[in-house]
Each structure stands twice: as C-alpha cells, then as structure tokens.
C-alpha cells in the first residue's frame, strides 16, 4: 500500500525545502481541485506538502499603487472590505466560486497554479497584467500571469516552486466580473469576462475566461473602445450604442472556444460578447 507522505511546513522556505526533499510532491492549499482529482483516482502523488499552516501566504496589502495578495488568500478572504474595495471585480469573481465551504477553502494561489481555463480569478488577473511571485530553491522570481499559465491546466511553475503572492497595479475606475453558467450559483464558468476601466489612463482592459485554453485579452476590443469612449463627458465616460455593440462583437471575436459537455463553442462565443458588453455598460454610460 502506497501511503502519501505529508509535510506540514509553517513558512514558504520550509515548503520549498519540503518540495525539494520529496520529488513528485504535490502542493496542497484549499484542495478544491486537487482533492477532487484524488477522489476520481486521477492523481496519486507520493507526497503532499500542505500549505494551510504557512500563515505568511494568507496576507494581503493594499497600497495606493498596488495590491499584493498572498497565494493563500481564500475566495472568502477576497470579500474582505479592504481588499474588495480595492479590487471589487476580484470579490465578485470569488463570490461566483462554488459553495461557501469551497470559498472558505480554495485559494488564489491554487487558482493560478491549477490553471484551469475556467479559473474564476484569472480573467481579472489577466486584465490587470498581474505579476506572480514564485519562490524556489534559488530564490524568488516574478513572472506575468501569461508566462505562468501556459495552457489548459499547465504552467511554467517549477516542481520545487511555490506561488507566494500575486501583485497588481491599482487602476482608478470601475471594474466588473461577469460569469455565465447553467445554474445560478455553484457552477463552472461556461464563459466569463473581466472588464477594468482606467479613467485616468483612458484605458479599457478586457479579459475572458472559459473561451480559450488560457485567459485571453480582447485587445482589439480594448483599442476600439478606448478610442470610442468620450472620456471627458460630463457625468463620466460614455460611448455610443454602435461603439458598444462593436465592442461586444470584437470581444466575441477574441474568443477561441470549444464544444464540450458543458456548452457549445458557438454559445460561448455569443455569451462572452454579451457579458463583456454588459459589464462595460455598467462602467461606461451609453451616449444618447
């Protein structure tokens, strides 16, 4: 009988050592993905390094310029008043994850490291050009989300590296996260979109989930709408009906979805355009 060894580090450095000492070891944070795979018999790692006791991973810090979110921050933690006022779309994304029990367990670091196309925090992180801080035996490195998440459930994270934290620059202006599922809660995304409006830089940032192997930015849509918005309109930025409709079309065009047992490629493309446009309309007024 193979019984997995379990390491219980209390610091990130101890976790790195534990990983080095047990080749093939699996990091365990909330377990909301990993334990499901174990139960399905898909994973039987020889050792597990459990991160629950690593308290430094669960910190977050909000400054005027950046938000630093520890990898151990749970979905429930993302509703924390300080964090959610700095990143309301992250709190909104976290609220769509699973049940309260799952939100109490699952973590931001786990969402990044699992790298599911349906990872609910990933579109917002992609929209904000998040930087992922990783620590391994040779020290810390920082990589963009795109460098870390390389494909469907594949990452560039080394076998002895730990995701320590995620850093994003603050963007002044409204932001939204919208997710489509066949049920009104506790559902894997069929399509999702994060929209961030930067009212100082006059930028719109849009990233999509569940419509491509990795979170994708709708760059053409971003460029189009940034040009089309009247940023200096009295009462806040506004855009014309035609510009908003075109935005939705360009977002849909940025998707490269698949058909599977959850939905069809055609619906995913349709839905992601609709929700991105609706998200933007909550941030930007429609010109008469």
């Amino acid at each position: 009988m193979r019984v997995a060894r379990v390491a219980l580090p209390t610091t990130v450095d101890e976790a790195v050592v534990a990983l080095r000492d047990a080749p093939g070891a699996q990091l365990l944070a909330g377990g909301t993905d990993f334990c499901v795979e174990v139960n399905f018999g898909l994973r039987r790692p020889p050792a597990v390094v459990a991160l629950r006791r690593v308290r430094e991973l669960r910190r977050h810090a909000v400054t005027p310029e950046t938000v630093v979110i520890g990898a151990g921050t749970t979905y429930a933690d993302m509703g924390d008043p300080g964090l959610s006022s700095a990143l309301p779309a992250l709190a909104a994304a976290a609220r769509t994850v699973g049940s309260p029990q799952v939100r109490n367990a699952g973590t931001l670091g786990g969402n990044v490291a699992t790298a599911s196309p349906a990872g609910d925090t990933l579109p917002l992180l992609a929209a904000l050009d998040a930087r992922v801080v990783l620590r391994g035996p040779s020290g810390e490195r920082t990589a963009s989300l795109g460098e870390v998440v390389t494909g469907v459930k594949t990452t560039s994270i080394g076998p002895d590296e730990v995701v320590v934290e995620v850093v994003v620059d603050r963007r002044p202006g409204p932001q939204q996260f919208v997710k489509v599922g066949t049920r009104n809660a506790m559902v894997i995304a069929i399509a999702s979109a994060a929209v961030v409006v930067d009212v100082e830089a006059h930028e719109v940032r849009v990233a999509l989930g569940s419509v491509a192997p990795v979170p994708v930015r709708a760059t053409a849509a971003e460029v189009h709408i940034a040009d089309a918005i009247d940023w200096r309109a009295a009462g806040g930025p506004r855009a014309s009906e035609g510009a908003l409709a075109r935005f939705g079309e360009l977002v849909a065009g940025a998707a490269s979805p698949i058909t599977d047992h959850r939905s069809t490629a055609e619906y995913r493309r349709l839905a992601v355009g609709v929700i991105a446009r609706r998200a933007l309309e909550r941030c930007v007024a429609r010109a008469a």
Binding site: V178, K179, N184, A185, A189, I275, R278, E281
Partner: peptide, 16 residues
C-alpha cells in the same frame, strides 16, 4: 442581482 437570471454570475441587469 442575485435574484435575477444568472444569479451569482451577475450576468443580467433588470433591463435584460
């Protein structure tokens, strides 16, 4: 918004 179609996913506004 939770009471609208789409629920927690915040997909709909009343106008939709």
């Amino acid at each position: 918004m939770m009471a609208l179609p789409g629920g927690a996913g915040a997909t709909a506004d009343p106008v939709h």
